[in-house]
């Protein structure tokens, strides 16, 4: 489903930062992969490269057999199949919850409004807040906003879902409600790549955990293997810090 081959990415802001160095990763259909690593390790950059929000300098990324690096690829068509959930929700504040969940269905998928509304209600029920359909994002709690953001991404019926630290901006008591939605999705067989430090989530539903540091994939394995008996010292040191 996702193939990342020898990808390099360097930022030149104030000084040179090698965000991704020779990164290769494969994610199968239905697989749930969590990426962990210290801040600045390139995990968010890798995720953002998967739907071309960042361009790569070298290497190849293939999503569902379509190479992102090919200039003939219609990037909007690929993105429509790849849902993304952001750390800061990024809901559209000038639209109601209903509007947020229907806008891309109507404008990109060209669904009739009634169908889009039906899909929106179905998804809002799935994430547990159908009663908020007519509210504006500013009237919702962080947890509710993030659940709307998940519904918004799911409304496009994507083949892949990317989560960029979805619970990092939430108050502790709201993390559970968002993780529950993500767990349901994982169990339903959605292909997911998650950047997160939620160990409980990783242990419960993840097939694989990837540890990144300084732009490289240090090691990858099942949650049990990586959390309980990591091979590398850097992984051990990092895990010791976050537990």
């Amino acid at each position: 489903m996702i193939e990342v081959r020898n990808v390099y990415k360097t930022f030149y802001s104030r000084h040179r930062v090698d965000a991704l160095v020779d990164v290769s990763l494969e994610v199968q259909k239905g697989e749930v992969v969590t990426i962990i690593g210290p801040s600045g390790s390139g995990k968010s950059t890798l995720l953002r490269c998967l739907n071309h929000l960042e361009t790569i300098d070298r290497g190849e990324i293939i999503i569902d057999d379509i190479p992102l690096t090919d200039s003939r690829t219609n990037i909007n068509a690929v993105r429509a199949e790849v849902g993304m959930v952001f750390q800061s929700f990024n809901l559209f504040p000038h639209m109601t919850v209903q509007g947020n969940v229907t806008i891309a269905q109507i404008k990109v998928r060209r669904r009739p409004r009634t169908d889009a509304d039906g899909m929106a209600m179905k998804l809002l029920e799935k994430v547990g807040i159908p009663e908020k359909a007519d509210s504006y994002p500013s009237q919702l709690s962080g947890g509710q906003q993030q659940r709307v953001a998940i519904a918004r991404a799911l409304a496009m019926q994507p083949k892949i879902m990317l989560f960029d630290e979805p619970t990092s901006a939430l108050d502790p008591e709201m993390i559970g409600e968002v993780l529950d939605v993500m767990k349901t999705l994982a169990r339903e067989g959605m292909t997911m790549v998650v950047v997160s430090h939620e160990m409980g989530f990783a242990r419960e539903v993840c097939d694989r955990v990837v540890f990144m540091d300084e732009g490289r994939i240090v090691e990858a394995g099942t949650p049990e293997k990586l959390f309980d008996s990591p091979d590398h010292d850097r992984t051990k040191a990092f895990l010791a810090q976050i537990i």
Partner: peptide
């Protein structure tokens, strides 16, 4: 905020 454009583009718009 930049995230608005990113969210819209990530939906395929």
């Amino acid at each position: 905020h930049r995230g608005q454009m990113e969210a819209a583009r990530s939906l395929g718009m």
